[in-house]
Design a protein around this nucleic acid. Structure first.
Lengths: 339, 339
DNA sequence: GTGAAAGCGCTAACAT
DNA sequence: ATGTTAGCGCTTTCAC
């Protein structure tokens, strides 16, 4: 089967000891130029690669970082991942991506595995289902470096990279208000997610600023972030069944925004005649949509980059770190109007 | 820092030997129930997890498989990845995803690293830039199990999972012909990719069947699969600058299809008035597009599943395998018409 | 300048 | 039923 060559192979072939070969390959001064040359040439010839697993075991670090997101098929996350990779690779780290599909169980299983020695640190964006982060808490307490991005755990003290969700939500809601909408509903992910809380807050602030009443019936939660079509459909149907039907919806997530548009289309509810819509989304194809969707865009790539930089700094720090930052990046409202 | 507990820790704390602890944890018959109980309880208490790196080193396998795709932000690939994961996790394998971004260099670097001991096998979809697969060839010869999906290497003998690209392309082209289009252009990825060749072939067959001439000027290649906006834009502009402007375009890839629609929109070329378009895409939001895009959809999830099953079979095979299959799955034409 | 030996965490002969 | 030892591939003292 697949048996890559080892130091021992080289040593045996050349009649040297493994330690000499090891030193020669890593260019120590205490090796004679001739020996060095012979070893290097032979290693090159047989295409020798050091076994990273043996190295990891020895050095007790794997030079890899684990990423936990809900799914890669999400524009925000795929862009963030690209940002993560760009930094990680330039610093010699490998990136292991895992998906939760918004399930607490999968999140826990993935993280437990990653943590149990195969990664040096974690970049985490919580699943919609997750409300109990005690298992993360305990990993963190035991010293596993982690940085949160987008969906953060409030009760864990570490670096956090988020978008200015409040302001983004405020602007999106304000946009609807300025269009003349009076009964603006809010479709969001699960209630305990940090992003849900912050975006709801921005939504409320906009209502308040413009003297519109806040109506709890207008807020619909999707505990799985719209992972299932039915979830979104039910929420939309409930909204449209209200006595005082909303005349607009502000949607708090990428998957949810797209999902809601599909639902509306299937229910033959027309935009903007029947209802106005705006939502968070990092999709790069929104320009192709009809009707167009005015969206709140997060600097996903940059968020991924910053999170990774901070994580690597934590990993490589010689001393325990106790000072943590919460970095807040600005969103941008991308207005797409008909006509 | 982060120092997870080891067998030795348990052994020391309990006054046992590491081997006894090891056996107790893995429930061998030759351990007394009392000892077993004590060990299990203590392990549970300190939340012991075996070190997978040490296990990998010992067993010379990592129970993980490497995946190489061009990018996760591609509907086809993200769906395929979900299929891959679904099988892999159920069989106890972990999945390491790497992206080439259509670059040969990144592909090679990623694969070299994965191969040098950290994965038991590879699921590969080649980058658009890749024409030389000798480095893969040599890994394969040395016994590293690999399975290709979607974009396959013709000169490497192993399992391959592909869609019926020829038929898919034929149907898409035929659809345009039946709509009355006479001068159908073909926008595709790099010329050496297996999918490009097969889809071009299907396109040609449709033209031939309906007595339309094949015109090489109507075929435009994008060596980076439309990774850059300019690449797609240039191709479209060249097509539209032809003496005999095409009245339709059949597009051979996911990213390219979306990219082309954006370009057409920006160039203010209207669909279907100025031109008709159809293309390969697994996007789940095509229904929201306006104008709508008739698309060829690949069974991505299923392809990922099958590829993974075959790979795991290769990995776990006791004897070298010499019989390889090429599995061809049917595409489906999703007609989306105006009106 | 080079080799022998120990150790990273684990399992599996091989004792006892 | 439990302990001792060797070895997976590598680096790193410590000898010579």
């Amino acid at each position: 089967m697949f048996e890559p060559s080892t130091l021992k192979d080289i040593a045996k072939a050349l009649g040297l000891s493994t330690s000499t070969v090891s030193r020669a390959l890593r260019d120590t001064h205490e090796i004679s130029p001739e020996t060095k040359k012979i070893v290097l040439e032979y290693a090159e010839k047989i295409n020798y690669r050091p076994n990273p697993i043996a190295l990891s075991l020895k050095e007790r670090r794997s030079k890899s970082i684990g990423v936990i997101v809900s799914e890669v098929a999400n524009h925000y996350f795929s862009q963030a991942i690209n940002g993560i990779e760009s930094i990680a690779y330039s610093r010699g780290y490998h990136v292991i991506i895992t998906q939760t599909h918004e399930s607490y169980e999968r999140e826990k299983a993935n993280i437990q595995h990653l943590a149990s020695r195969s990664v040096d640190g974690l970049l985490v964006s919580l699943s919609a289902e997750t409300s109990d982060t005690s298992y993360l808490q305990s990993l963190h307490k035991r010293g596993l470096p982690m940085v949160f991005f987008d969906r953060v755990a409030d009760d864990i003290e570490t670096h956090k990279i988020i978008a200015n969700n409040e302001k983004g939500a405020f602007e999106a809601t304000e946009y609807l208000i300025k269009k003349g909408c009076k009964r603006i509903a809010h479709l969001t992910s699960s209630a305990h997610l940090s992003i849900s809380i912050e975006r709801l807050e921005g939504y409320k602030q906009a209502l308040e600023k413009y003297g519109l009443p806040f109506n709890q019936d207008y807020v619909k939660y999707c505990p799985h972030g719209g992972m299932f079509y039915e979830e979104t459909e039910t929420a939309v149907k409930e909204l449209m069944a209200l006595e005082e039907k909303p005349d607009a919806i502000f949607i708090a997530g990428d998957r949810l925004s797209i999902g809601c548009l599909v639902v509306l289309k299937n229910l033959k509810i027309n935009i903007p005649e029947d209802i106005n819509v705006t939502g968070f989304s990092n999709s790069d194809v929104l320009d192709l949509f009809n009707p167009p969707l005015t969206s709140v865009r997060q600097p996903a790539f940059e968020m991924g980059q910053i999170a990774t930089e901070k994580l690597i700094k934590l990993i490589e720090s010689k001393y325990p770190v106790y000072e943590f930052e919460k970095e807040v990046l600005e969103t941008s409202l991308q207005v797409r109007d008909d006509l």
